[in-house]
C-alpha cells in the first residue's frame, strides 16, 4: 500500500517535472525561440538576468517546486534501482534512510538559497 503510494507520487512528480523542466528549457536554453517571438531576454543566463529572475516570486516558487519534485523523483527512482540488488534488509533500510536524508538536506539547502536570494 505504502509503496504503491510512493510510486503514485513518483509519477505525479514526473508529470510536474515535465511541465517545469519544459518551462526551464524554454527560458534558459531555447531562449532564441522565445526571443524571436518577442518574449524573454536575449541573454537569459547572464548573471544580472539570473539575479533579477531570482527576485521574482513566480520563479522562486517554481524553483523550489522543481527542486523538490526532481529530488523526490530522481532519488526514489534511484532507490528502486538499488532495491533490485536485493541486499540484506538492513542495507536496504540504510540506503532508504540515507537517500531520504540526502533529499531532505539538499531540499533544505536549495530552498534556503532560493529564499535567501529572493529576500536579498
Amino acid at each position: 500500500m505504502r509503496e504503491s503510494k510512493l510510486w503514485v507520487y513518483h509519477l505525479i512528480a514526473g508529470a510536474v517535472i515535465l511541465v517545469l523542466l519544459g518551462i526551464h528549457m524554454f527560458i534558459m536554453h531555447l531562449d532564441a525561440i522565445l526571443y524571436s517571438l518577442g518574449v524573454g531576454s536575449q541573454n537569459p543566463i547572464d548573471s544580472g538576468v539570473v539575479f533579477a529572475r531570482s527576485k521574482e516570486l513566480f520563479f522562486m516558487i517554481t524553483y523550489i517546486i522543481l527542486l523538490g519534485t526532481a529530488l523526490y523523483h530522481g532519488l526514489y527512482g534511484f532507490k528502486n534501482i538499488l532495491m533490485e540488488l536485493t541486499l540484506a534488509q538492513k542495507s536496504e533500510k540504510f540506503i532508504s534512510g540515507f537517500l531520504t536524508l540526502c533529499g531532505v538536506l539538499l531540499f533544505a539547502y536549495g530552498t534556503f538559497a532560493a529564499v535567501f536570494v529572493f529576500m536579498k
Binding site: M1, R2, E3, S4, K5, L6, W7, N80, M83
Partner: peptide, 13 residues
C-alpha cells in the same frame, strides 16, 4: 488485497 498487491514487493516493482 491491497496489502499483498501494493507492498514493497508488489505491483510497483
Amino acid at each position: 488485497r491491497i496489502k499483498a498487491v501494493h507492498d514493497e514487493i508488489g505491483a510497483s516493482r
